[in-house]
């Protein structure tokens, strides 16, 4: 699903965020991306989101070379990727429902489909009763779950998460990870960047460890 082929990323300042990173991720696979802060985890996710372009190397997603994807095609590509952010990037000028509906509105879904899918996604994260509330009134864990609902509402084939449990206590973190696992069992390719080593050890998932932009460890594919 996602193929990194000796990818390097150098920022204009001259620092190398990634150098010579290669790996393959399959559909239905859940993978952790670990490493110290500044190791290049965020850069790697940004490459998949096309928020950045690699300096060298080939990046293939679903068989398509992203290097050759034109700017105007980027939005359509992004509609197949769901992202969960550490700071969840929710909009506080609208309700939970409207936040989750955003990816569907952007893609031009029919209004009746939107209602159905948003409620299904909120149901999945256990927040169906909060759909009319403003996300600012929710707890940190609930906000993160709204962010997850928004990331999966359009049923993306790839789900990326950048430190999704960064601000949560261990119990909530485990809950969130269980959610991710459920999506991966549905065939979604899930890639979670985290530094929460305890959590990873419980999950028995593939681990890609970055060190100063290099792939230091790849535990290989682990099927569930």
């Amino acid at each position: 699903m996602i193929q990194f082929d000796s990818i390097s990323k150098r920022y204009p300042g001259g620092q190398d965020a990634l150098s010579g990173v290669s790996f393959n991720l399959d559909a239905g696979e859940m993978t952790f991306l670990t490493g110290h802060s500044g190791a290049g985890k965020s850069s790697l996710l940004k490459l998949i989101m096309l928020m950045e372009r690699p300096t060298h190397g080939q990046l293939l997603v679903n068989g398509k070379n992203l290097n050759r994807l034109h700017r105007s095609q980027v939005p359509f590509y992004r509609r197949n990727v769901g992202v969960v952010f550490q700071n969840h990037q929710l909009l506080f000028d609208r309700s939970v429902y409207q936040n989750v509906a955003l990816p569907l509105l952007v893609s031009g879904y029919q209004p009746r489909d939107i209602g159905r899918r948003v409620r299904a996604a909120l149901d999945k994260v256990g927040l169906l009763d909060k759909e009319t509330q403003n996300p600012i009134a929710l707890s940190g864990g609930e906000q993160q779950r709204v962010g997850i609902a928004r990331a999966v509402v359009h049923k993306p084939k790839i789900l990326l998460a950048d430190e999704p449990t960064g601000n949560l206590d261990p119990e909530l973190s485990a809950e969130i990870m269980q959610l991710f696992r459920q999506f991966c069992e549905l065939g979604v390719c899930v890639l979670v960047a985290t530094h929460d080593v305890d959590l990873i050890s419980h999950m028995n998932c593939r681990n890609l460890k970055l060190d100063h932009g290099r792939l230091a460890l790849d535990t290989g594919e682990t099927r569930h």
Binding site: N62, F76, L186
Partner: peptide, 18 residues
């Protein structure tokens, strides 16, 4: 597969569901 969800990033769709 989502209706109206045009996957521009490739011809080979994943064999998730028919």
């Amino acid at each position: 597969m989502a209706k109206g969800n045009s996957f521009s990033a490739g011809k080979n769709r994943p064999a998730r569901k028919p």
